[in-house]
Computed example of a mutant assay.
Amino acid sequence: MQKITPFLWFDNEAEEAMKFYTSIFKKSKIVSVTKYGEAGPGPKGTVMSAIFQLNGQEFYALNGGPSFKFSPAISFFVKCETQKEIDYYWKKLSAGGGETLQCGWLRDKFGVSWQIVPPILIELLGDKDPVKSQRVMQAMLKMTKLDIKKLKKAYQQK
């Protein structure tokens, strides 16, 4: 049983977001949907909350109204082993009005922030040789979508 579950507060897009995310990630499914009844506070029959899984990770979504907005202070880190995987998630998550940002970050059409990152980046940035890791950092800072070949090239420069 998962002990910690991300809780996403939407204005009224929880169902749309859940369907969007489960269409992108493998091993994903909608677990349950709860709708507002007579007591409200939302219109009867509309989605109040939903539980869904992305790659087996459980998420909870709520249509809680406009009181809160998403911030880049919280983001989801998607580890991508290949450039093909980076390209896939980058395209899918930024589709339909999302915004691509610097250093592998993007904001999807719902305002949720994602980091699309190859684990090799962390390895290269953590290299004991500060000159190599600095070259990788400088290369990364010039990118929006991360490019594994360019990061490796920066690392291997003489």
Rank of each mutant, 00 (worst) to 15 (best):
F25K: 11
T34Y: 10
M1H: 10
N63F: 06
V31G: 04
F77M: 13
K145E: 01
C80R: 03
K149Y: 03
K79P: 04
K150N: 06
F77H: 14
G40P: 11
Q115L: 09
K152P: 01
Q2E: 15
K35I: 03
I24V: 15
S75Q: 06
S71V: 07
F52K: 08
F7Y: 15
N55A: 10
A14Q: 10
K109M: 06
P41N: 11
Q115R: 09
K44H: 08
G45C: 02
I86P: 06
P118I: 05
D87N: 15
Q2C: 02
T22P: 01
V78L: 15
P72H: 09
L124S: 08
Q83G: 00
Y21P: 09
P43I: 07
Y21V: 12
P130W: 06
L101R: 08
N55Y: 06
W9K: 08
L151C: 04
A73Q: 12
S113G: 07
V136T: 02
N55L: 12
A39C: 01
L125F: 11
L151E: 01
K35A: 04
Q115C: 03
G65P: 04
E123Y: 00
G97C: 05
S32N: 14
W9Q: 14
S67G: 08
F76E: 05
K142L: 09
D147G: 01
G111Y: 05
M140F: 07
L141T: 11
E81M: 04
Q157A: 15
C103A: 10
G65H: 08
T5M: 12
T82M: 07
P119H: 10
K142A: 13
A61I: 09
D147Q: 07
S49G: 14
E123W: 00
K26Q: 15
L125V: 05
A61D: 03
S49Y: 03
A14E: 03
P66M: 09
I24W: 08
